[in-house]
């Protein structure tokens, strides 16, 4: 993709003309000027060390502590890990739990399932919106205005957005009233809310913007000259999408999906508010065990969630090499 840089571009956020190499050298690498690298990275390093590395280390250490009904005891044990992975009777061929997955693995599995489903839905809903903004809207001011319009839901608090579904989808909500008054149903339908349907809908609504942003930016960067060239060569719109637009927007898709993936894996509030708590996510498990002061087990769940997230991100980055694409 490096060729892109050398071409003229008419896109919104195209790459800048490459300046003379000597100019770059002079500007960036001048040890006499400004702060040294060490000083520049110090604030971020200290900050990350204090709020990321130290607490993470604490979580790892706590996960090996022993939990008793009256608090955590400094006695190293892998009990909490066994509890996470192994169901009672797991190795006992006589037991009906023989080789049955533990509740917590299943819960993590359900968390991943809902996350993937939401990611797919966000892509299906978000990509066309981003495409429309970047490709169909010609004027910059309109692109900006419509993009900001997508962000409107973020102007209110997360909780208000989640709660606002009730007057819309509830038993006595707007949709049910409309259906009733039109005579389509004779009593309110209940599948709209406190249901998997409602849960998915709310998750997509809340998180789709995180996908639209990056996809929009990567689409907007595509040099329109490529598209014109393709048209001149007789490519069909589908071919243009498959050969040019699709591949060139992949980095945006990957970044958007990573945002959504990370946010939803740790979700628990929407499940409570919109799904009526009718599901368990690893987030709610952590909360429940925190609530009974069983910190070691909450820590194990937090770590397993983190491992799942890292694996997920690695997979996404395997599919799309963001560094190469950017």
């Amino acid at each position: 993709m490096t060729e892109v840089r050398e071409t003229h571009h008419s896109g919104l956020i195209g790459s800048q003309p490459v300046p003379d190499e000597t100019v770059i050298r002079a500007k960036i690498i001048n040890p006499e000027e400004g702060f040294s690298t060490g000083w520049l990275i110090a604030p971020a390093t200290i900050w990350l060390f204090l709020i990321l590395v130290v607490p993470l280390a604490a979580i790892i250490v706590f996960s090996f502590f022993k939990s008793t009904p009256h608090g955590m005891v400094f006695e190293l044990t892998t009990h909490s890990y066994a509890e996470f992975f192994i169901t009672e009777g797991f190795f006992d061929s006589e037991s009906n739990s023989f080789l049955k997955l533990s509740v917590f693995i299943k819960t993590l599995g359900a968390t991943i399932y809902f996350t993937l489903l939401t990611m797919i839905l966000c892509l299906i809903v978000g990509y066309p919106i981003a495409y429309f903004l970047a490709m169909q809207v010609q004027q910059f001011k309109w692109q900006l205005a419509l993009f900001l319009l997508c962000m409107v839901p973020f102007w209110t608090s997360y909780l208000i957005r989640a709660v606002a579904w009730l007057p819309m989808l509830g038993r006595r909500g707007l949709i049910n009233q409309a259906l009733l008054s039109m005579g389509i149903v004779d009593k309110p339908v209940s599948f709209l809310f406190y249901s998997e349907f409602g849960y998915m809908m709310a998750l997509v609504q809340i998180y789709v913007v995180l996908g639209i942003g990056p996809i929009f930016f990567s689409l907007a960067k595509i040099d329109k000259a490529f598209l014109e060239a393709a048209v001149d060569m007789g490519a069909t719109p589908f071919q243009i999408f498959r050969e040019i637009i699709g591949p060139m927007s992949l980095p945006g898709v990957a970044i958007g999906m990573i945002f959504i993936f990370v946010m939803i894996m740790g979700e628990f509030a929407t499940a409570v508010v919109v799904y009526g708590g009718k599901t368990s996510t690893t987030g709610t498990v952590i909360l429940n065990y925190y609530g009974i002061a069983n910190y070691p087990f909450a820590a194990v769940n937090a770590l397993m969630l983190m491992v799942a997230m890292i694996v997920g991100i690695v997979i996404i980055l395997r599919v799309v090499d963001i560094r190469k694409e950017l």
């Binding site: 939990s67 509740v103 009718k278 368990s280 429940n288 009974i292």
Partner: peptide, 13 residues
């Protein structure tokens, strides 16, 4: 209590 919370997790899921 721990067993209860575990089974409750299963119930909700």
């Amino acid at each position: 209590n721990d067993y209860l919370v575990k089974r409750w997790t299963e119930f909700l899921g």
